[in-house]
Design a protein around this nucleic acid. Structure first.
Lengths: 216, 216
DNA sequence: CCATGTGAAGGTATTCACAGCC
DNA sequence: GGCTGTGAATACCTTCACATGG
């Protein structure tokens, strides 16, 4: 059925599918079945078909999905066709690694500016991006940037977010291990690395015990 | 009701609560209400009470929860009381940042070893950890390490995981943007940074359009 | 015959509303 | 009065089974 509302969990999987489609396209394929996409990304084939069914018919029965058409549609749904420029705030260890990270390109995302408060860093260039003074963050308003990555210590995260929102940023990927409050119109995704590692031990069976959590 | 099975989504939130409890304890509190914990971590108070109800009574009606007792119980459930030592594979930009990252300590987690294939890196020391040759990864078997962080390029992630599993690692936090296959008994959490940034634009309302996705 | 697309069934998690207790 | 703890109601997501179409 077409023009369903797309469930949140499906949205979370769309980038996974998108990457799988790209990889397959790079191998020279023009179409792919839900089964083989399933094998390559690690999601059930019926889940994939259900997910795709929320936004139209891209498959051909007996054949599979047209990779290019489907990838283009997913990009459109995720708005990756129009929103691509991001700013980084906080060029510490993690921030520098993110600046150097080549993985954003596949989604058409681009870190086009970086800010820090450290005078020793301001003015230097990393991966083609010159680090600017955080005091001048307002300038991003004129640069068509709607995404931000916050990689500052916890104590500074809220301030950074406030200034970013004031500068017109619409979405924030927050690496600081804390909640940041923003107006409802702005979306924040907090990615707490230590927390991910912290929930790993739960899934490790106790040696010599019968009752164990199973993996998800 | 006590001794329920703990839902997976609750397990995902436990580290969030744990951090909130620690922060509150550092401020000198000994107990905390679901309402104020809710304010500090950004989860509804009824969700918090429901989550805690899955594993027993830690609250006092009219007062709140005993922070220390609750924190200890959460750590026990997450097995953070026994599993704490981790190994890092891949000391590139991201890996170095993770070695320097101070955020693991709050959960009692510790990166005690690091491996890489680059001869220029092997032997040098970062944050008190000496980088060893990946060829000798088997040695972790004798070092009581059950967690691993994989921060290598996509093409090497599966090999790294295979070697880690062979070396007795039980849980892997994978930063490479791909699926890694492991035996059922081993748990993998893949954290794909670019993917998180990629789903952010979806939540940004189109300018001048009525229909908009709402934030989650 | 193969693979998609989808109603229906089943399972899981969230939200509510309020009884129970300090 | 305040706050926890929890059955019940609701919403959401996944899985199944199979009709549909190339």
């Amino acid at each position: 059925m077409r023009y369903h509302r797309i469930p949140d969990e499906t949205v979370r999987r769309l980038p996974v599918y998108l990457r799988g489609l790209m990889v397959s396209a790079n191998q020279g394929n023009t179409s792919i079945s839900s089964r083989s996409l399933a094998d390559s990304v690690g999601v059930n084939s019926w889940q994939i078909r259900k997910d795709f069914s929320y936004f139209g018919d891209f498959g051909t029965r007996g054949v599979g999905y047209d990779i290019e058409r489907l990838a283009k549609e997913i990009k459109k749904i995720l708005r990756l066709d129009v929103i691509r420029r991001a700013v980084l705030v906080g060029v510490g260890d993690l921030g520098s690694a993110l600046l150097a990270y080549p993985g954003f390109g596949i989604f058409g995302l681009d870190i086009v500016a970086a800010f820090d408060v450290d005078p020793k860093k301001i003015g230097s260039t990393l991966n083609g991006v010159t680090i600017e003074d955080f005091a001048g963050i307002d300038a991003v308003k004129e640069r068509d940037i709607s995404l931000a990555i916050v990689a500052v210590p916890r104590a500074e995260a809220q301030v950074a977010a406030d200034r970013l929102v004031a500068s017109g940023v619409k979405g924030i990927l927050n690496f600081a291990p804390c909640k940041v409050s923003v107006p409802r119109r702005v979306k924040v995704i907090t990615l707490d690395i230590a927390m991910e590692l912290a929930r790993l031990p739960y899934y490790i069976p106790r040696a010599g015990r019968a009752e164990e959590p199973q993996q998800a």
